[in-house]
């Protein structure tokens, strides 16, 4: 077992994370579909892991009209046109330390897709190791993915629920400047997307990046426990809400708490600051 494998088996749900070695050995596995999910919508087109397909968080997973995720029918199309079945092992990787990959994994979890994993270290690690990249887009035989209704009750928090939640564990994973509200003061420049700066009262500031190593891989379990359990005083049985600006960085923290540390009830508030900071009458702390 490599050092990397040893790190992974120590996590609460080690089956949620794969190494670049594992992925390289499974590229031709018919039961595995690899998806690239990036912040940059064109990055996949510049070159990607052989056999990987693009899954764009905005174009594929968000509803084009209302601010919400796609419904069961559209989700089934998105999965089916990528050759994914309900039993397929899906491995997602992406840029920016897997923010968008974690976000896509979280949305797939809302639809209850059982076996969906992240590539530890994401796109950057694969590239840094000099592994093969290609611009060839694979041909896919579409599958019939079942229409499953999204279950927002367990993993997702809405504004009113967050308001009720004030006083209980809440993690703000944005940068310190966004947490303090300083980043909104930029005269002459386009707004950052919120009318008010600051954070939800009582939220703890734990920037998402603290869970990641320099190379984008996740920190080992004991280091994560030192941050979230010892320093922040959270417990795996706690009811926790995580948020950021639009829910992507908090998906990363949601993944860490849920799958790496085994927290039982973590919800991602995807409305995040772009909703809270624009809402009338909600409390804001600075």
């Amino acid at each position: 077992m490599t050092e990397h494998d040893t790190k992974i088996v120590a996590y609460a749900h080690p089956e949620r994370l794969v190494t670049t070695d594992w992925l390289a050995a499974h590229l031709d596995d018919p039961d595995v579909v690899v998806l690239e999910s990036d912040e940059d919508v064109l990055l996949y087109d510049t070159g990607h892991i052989p056999g990987a397909l693009k899954l764009d968080w905005h174009l594929d997973l968000n509803d084009p009209l209302s601010r919400d995720y796609v419904g069961g029918e559209r989700f089934a199309e998105v999965m089916g046109e990528r050759g994914i079945g309900r039993d397929t092992t899906v491995v997602i990787y992406g840029d920016k330390s897997n923010w968008w990959a974690a976000y896509a994994l979280w949305v797939m979890s809302l639809f209850g897709h059982e076996d969906v994993r992240l590539l530890d270290g994401g796109r950057a690690k694969w590239v840094a190791e000099g592994r093969e990249m290609t611009t060839d887009v694979p041909e896919v035989t579409p599958t019939a993915y079942p229409v499953v209704e999204r279950d927002d009750s367990r993993l997702r928090a809405f504004k009113d629920q967050v308001r009720e939640h004030i006083g209980r564990p809440m993690v703000d994973v944005r940068s310190p400047g966004e947490f303090s509200g300083e980043l909104l003061h930029m005269p002459d420049y386009p707004q950052e997307g919120a009318m008010r700066g600051g954070h939800i009262p009582g939220a703890r500031s734990v920037p998402w990046a603290r869970a990641a190593n320099e190379d984008g891989t996740f920190r080992p379990r004991e280091e994560l426990e030192a941050i979230y359990l010892e320093e922040q005083g959270l417990a795996p049985s706690d009811d926790v809400v995580a948020y950021c600006r639009i829910g992507e960085r908090s998906s990363h923290t949601w993944f860490v708490l849920t799958h790496l540390l085994g927290f039982e009830k973590v919800r991602n508030y995807d409305g995040s600051w772009t909703e809270w900071g624009n809402s009338v009458g909600v409390p804001v702390e600075r």
């Binding site: 919508v41 064109l42 764009d56 905005h58 174009l59 002459d188 420049y189 386009p190 997307g193 639009i246």
Partner: peptide, 21 residues
């Protein structure tokens, strides 16, 4: 806007306003 998502267009709007300034 539809091809890349409206959210991603902010970057180009920001570039243009800074160029003009």
């Amino acid at each position: 806007a539809d091809a890349v998502s409206p959210l991603r267009m902010r970057g180009m709007v920001g570039m243009l306003s800074r160029i003009k300034r």
